[in-house]
Design a protein around this nucleic acid. Structure first.
Length: 582
RNA sequence: GCGCCCGUAGCUCAGUGGAUAGAGCGACAGACUUCUAAUCUGUUGGUCGGAGGUUCGAAUCCUCCCGGGCGCGCCA
């Protein structure tokens, strides 16, 4: 039987304890269905469905479960209520023990996975020589947050930045680079003027037949491995990669050059992959192209829907590349869980890729792939976020504006800080607000982008959480408290607000597991907001530095310390900084 | 045409089988010689898009309909 010393996930702990009793009563495993409750700390609703199965009165079943459950060390009060709910109130001593465990541990008693899983996360995926936009923002920060949580939980994470670094556009891009000269190209790309570079190349391609012809020839040279062409291509890719790095650095997304695994990575695997699919009988000739028809997908005409393995002109498209990437990730990188984070528009494509992967035996018992898509970013007019001219907004412009707006607020409200500190805080608040606005919404839904709302210090925003964190820090400063000394502090909960705060603290670990499992970072956001709310209620009611006696004071300081660390750790899981002064 | 996703308070969003559906903003009324008022307290506000169904119990599961978005063979 697990105790508070090994588990800091309260609902899970209660669930485990009750599960034994439920199993005894049911004669087989039965879900206790533990939930938060507004009538107690938690409620367990499992007796109702179990009663139905056993054809017994629900309250009688609930009472028997309670009779058999071993909850004495955790629960102060447990009773059958309503039609057969079990209302559970945690004991203050149990919660004190739990907070004490968190206070004494660097990791806030969040366990590392005993059986780490190799998880591959595919995210960000910008295109070479093209500007990054809001779509890359979502993929980048959701992926980054997922990676941070998985790593914190002790998993073995492989990041893959599947950049667009191959294909027919590179003919025109390389020719445009030749026209500009390498030096000028490097300059344009390094200063982040990729939009102009790409558009100029496109313009030349569309308006100048001679250029278009050169571009087409250049594609052939590129695909045939012409050394000079490859060198030019390499330059283009390297310059773009450098640019991506500066954006990631600015955003606080921890993608590195070694995480790059663009489409070109799989060039020499395309033919072998096709050979394997042919051998397995999964490839079919159709309309001059070689196709795979995964089971269960139909097209406009009601016929089977293909992935094009080899185009009728002999070339390869992204279907083949994504299949090769899948095979490589499972076979060579040994990933057991693969998470793809792209916009929802690509769902069908990836579901088809995964189905072929299953039919080919790459996926199955040894590995599974998940498509975790996200919705689009809308303006306050409820239409896709764009510039007034109708272009997609450059990601870097968005970052600049976030920090600029935050700086105005900081200058007004934190004039007591030095100019340098103000700049740091503005960056943390601006970028944090931008990321939090995205992460705090359900990934699958579209969300409305609104500067005023995301930068507000009220409500479920990054600035509110950052401020809550900074306020706690100021308590330590004001009281000249050595936080290290709080590690062994005895926690005593007396006020209901302390009890409520401790409950929320005891849910941290479980939230991380849940968020990583279903790739829903907004669960972490909602949790941190609840925690901050519980803290401010505590802070309003319970004097800390002015507590009546030393024992209460040190207990409350320990609550402050653990809360601050959960907030900072939680925000860091989201890739958001928590300044100590604001 | 077929498929996928979304529809919850005036606005922005939580809540996916449990008790009276929650939060922030807005509006209204309060609380600062501050442990940081960048905060907090209270009031206001909902036929959970609609109609059937399953269930002891449905915002949540099923079916149909309405509205919005996206996708459906050689672009990614």
């Amino acid at each position: 039987m697990r105790s508070l010393l090994t588990v800091t996930d309260l609902p899970q702990l209660l669930s485990e304890r009750l599960a034994r009793a439920f199993a005894d009563v049911a004669g087989e495993p039965a879900d206790p269905a533990v939930r938060r409750s507004d009538r107690a700390d938690y409620q367990a609703d499992g007796a109702l469905s179990l009663a139905k199965k056993l054809r017994r009165p629900p309250r009688e079943v609930a009472a028997e479960v309670l009779e058999r459950a071993d909850l004495d060390d955790l629960v102060a009060n447990a009773e059958v209520a309503g039609p057969g709910f079990l209302n559970l109130t945690l004991s203050d001593t149990a919660l004190s023990t739990l907070v004490g465990e968190m206070a004494a541990d660097e990791r806030l008693a969040v366990a590392q996975a005993s059986a780490p899983e190799r998880v591959l996360v595919d995210y960000s995926g910008p295109n070479v020589a093209k500007e990054m936009h809001v779509g890359h923002l979502r993929s980048s920060i959701i992926g980054d947050a997922l990676v941070r949580v998985l790593e914190h939980l002790g998993h073995d994470v492989v990041r893959q930045n599947h950049i667009g670094d191959w294909g027919t556009p590179f003919g025109m891009l390389i020719e445009h680079m030749i026209d500009l000269g390498a030096g000028e190209t490097a300059h344009e790309l390094s200063v982040g003027d990729l939009g102009a570079f790409y558009q100029d190349a496109r313009k030349a391609f569309d308006s100048d037949e001679g250029f278009a012809e050169r571009a087409r020839r250049r594609v052939v040279l590129l695909q045939s491995g012409d050394p000079e062409t490859l060198a030019l291509w390499r330059l283009l890719v390297d310059e773009s990669a450098r640019y991506f790095e500066t954006v990631y650095e600015r955003l606080g997304v921890r993608l590195r050059p070694e995480d790059l695994a663009g489409e070109s990575t799989y060039n020499d695997q395309l033919a072998p992959v096709i050979d394997e699919l042919v051998e397995l009988g999964l490839a079919t000739e159709s309309e001059g192209a070689l196709c795979a028809f995964p089971k269960g997908f139909t097209g406009r005409d009601g016929g089977p829907l293909p992935l094009i393995l080899r185009k009728s002109d002999g070339g390869f498209g992204y279907d083949t590349t994504d299949l090769a990437a899948l095979r490589y990730r499972v076979g060579d990188l040994k990933a057991r869980r693969l998470v793809y984070i792209t916009d929802l528009g690509q769902r069908l494509h990836f579901e088809m890729v995964f189905e072929v992967g299953r039919e080919a035996g790459w996926l199955g018992p040894r590995a599974h792939a998940e498509f975790q898509g996200f919705g689009v970013v809308l303006g306050t007019d409820r239409r896709r976020l764009r510039t007034r001219a109708g272009d997609s907004i450059k990601l870097i412009d968005l970052l600049d504006e976030a920090v600029r707006r935050a700086a105005l607020i900081v200058a007004e409200k934190a004039s007591h800080l030095s100019a340098e500190e103000q700049a740091d805080v503005a960056a943390a608040v601006g970028i944090g607000a931008l990321k939090y606005a995205d992460l705090s919404n359900d990934r699958i839904k579209d969300y409305v982008f609104d500067w005023d709302r995301m930068l507000s210090f009220d409500g479920n925003t990054a600035p509110y959480l950052q401020y809550a964190h900074a306020r706690i820090q100021s308590v330590f400063r004001r009281g000249a408290v050595d936080r290290a000394s709080l590690k062994g502090a005895a926690v005593r909960l007396t006020d209901p607000a302390e009890h409520a705060l401790a409950l929320r603290l005891g849910e941290f670990e479980g939230i991380l597991h849940k968020a990583a499992g279903v790739v829903e970072m907004h669960r972490i956001c909602g949790y941190l907001y609840d925690l901050a709310t519980a803290f401010t209620a505590f802070y309003e009611r319970c004097p800390v530095l002015r507590a009546d006696d030393d024992a209460t004071r040190s207990s409350r300081l320990a609550l402050c310390d653990v809360t601050a660390r959960v907030l900072a750790t939680g925000l860091s899981m989201l890739g958001i900084a928590a300044p100590t002064r604001m």
